[in-house]
Design a protein around this nucleic acid. Sequence first.
RNA 1: GCGCCUAUGGUGAAAUGGAUAUCAUACCUGCCUUCGAAGCAGAUGUUCCAGGUUCGAAUCCUGGUAGGCGCACCA
Length: 561
Amino acid sequence: MIVEELKKAISEAVKNLGVESPKVELEHPAELSHGDYSTNIAMASAKLAKQKPRDIAERIVAELQKNLPTGVEKIEVAGAGFINFHLKKEFFADAVKDIDGNFGKNQSFAGKKVMVEFTDPNPFKEFHIGHLMDNAIGESVARIFEFHSATVKRACWQGDVGMHVAKSIWGYRKEEETENTAQAWGKAYARGSEAFETDEAAKKEITTLNKVIYEKSDSEVNKLYDSGRQISLDYFEEIYRRVGTKFDHYFFESKEGVEGKKIVEEFLKKGVFEQSEGAVVFKGEQYGLHTRVFINSQGLPTYEAKELGLNKKKFEVEKDISLSIILSANEISEYFKVLLKVMSLVYPPIAAKTKHLSHGFLKLSEGKMSSRKGNVITGEGLIQQVKQLVFEKIKEREMSEAEKETLAEIVAVGAIKYSILRQAIGGDIIFDFDKSISFEGDSGPYLQYSYVRAKSVLAKAEAESIKGNPVLPKEWETTVLEKLLYRFPEVVERAGTELEPHYVTTFLTELAGVFNSWYAGGKIVDATDPASPYKLALTEVFVTTMENGLWLLGIKVPERM
RNA sequence: GCGCCUAUGGUGAAAUGGAUAUCAUACCUGCCUUCGAAGCAGAUGUUCCAGGUUCGAAUCCUGGUAGGCGCACCA
């Protein structure tokens, strides 16, 4: 590996100078003109040596020149004392040669199992664009772990009991003729919530109904409950299919709540929880957190207790989980700190392996979206709207209706996922339909288009029977494309360590830009050009990288567009 | 009130304590008789404020300001 070679050479050079120095760090400079790798070792050791950084840098370089590491074209001192390494064109050609379908994968989680819990929509409520955001991030995180060779188990945690269900069923019964569809249940929830907040009598009815649902004591309610629940779940399944997620495990609050309540009761005796105002609570203040209710005064488990049951259950259904990730919006971050504290007191080994990953909020420019108020954009609605724009764009194309339909779906879902995965996961996205979903510039379709275009170059080459060959042509000037391509595995690795899919998005966007620019600069397939086979090999490798990178983002690639 | 998070061109974002802060969009100017113009090339414009740490700060620390979220039986 070039990095290890360079590091070794640098530390030896530094040692030969008798300069004391900290650990050698290599990085890619922000600008390619500054070389392929750079080190700030001279600045870092200048203080220890009581010398000028630039002088040290000059002497290190002189030392390195005596025995230039393989693969290095030239070494320069720049700026305050940076040492920049420019690699040889052969290095890049070698890197290109090694790229295959596994490009970007590493072994860091080989033999380890990771569970990722995400999406988590609640039956009886809308599947809104916030769920779409959670899904896009969660699916990408799962795929990134798969590229780290982990066995990944996707889990979906669904609230099929609780106050929201009572509100929905109450709201459903209020309306005389209500269709049994997911949309109708979503509206019923809004009705129930409204009444709960404004009407005291309704509030009482709903609270009672909640208990009835838990106890399954009313057969008419049970019937409504069963059919409404199934309608929601079927509806969700259809969305998962469209966005490309397959869950391994579905967990339900109705089930895990029972176990969770038992855990709370057991640890109430052990003093972890205490009784307060008829409820069972955890006093978080002693840990700098706040108090939360685990069993309410009706004797029903709250979300906290259910989670306690859930996280134990995860480690029962899947043996040997190394890492259990829970994805959610950051509105419940504080709550999760309390939960993780309780978990560390109740079952420390599980708590130690559980990590809460919180992402920002997807909200509308006119304010917070709330399914209680009914001002939500549903996930399905958004996909439909974006699809319409795609249809508009391709209406003149010579394609069958079926082909247009498939293409519109792929482009629409890709555009949405890109708009979510382009930024660090902590930040909110103020959703504005016209601005948030783009087809040009930094966008999903830009990546898809670049890919499709490269594929058609390959198709042309095949038609003209020109084959790709990664052997360097005689006169060759290294392209920016080559200088970026070999970095892809590093990007994937970093995305995994930091749990940040957007590193992949940023890299692919830059790569596609570089490819497009190169593409516009001259012909790739050209029988009269001796460099054509190498150019083709580069194009092939670009296609492979885009395929793998887009897969990591959960973005599908069309054949034509 | 207390706690957590955030603040980067007009707008949306990126940046491992590093070099002249990078993209996109919008606006303006060119390029389809090259392998797909959902593209390419060019022009304009940016780190909330005040201190501090550091050879070096958008990044770390302190104090402000502005915004978001949370703070007992919703999830």
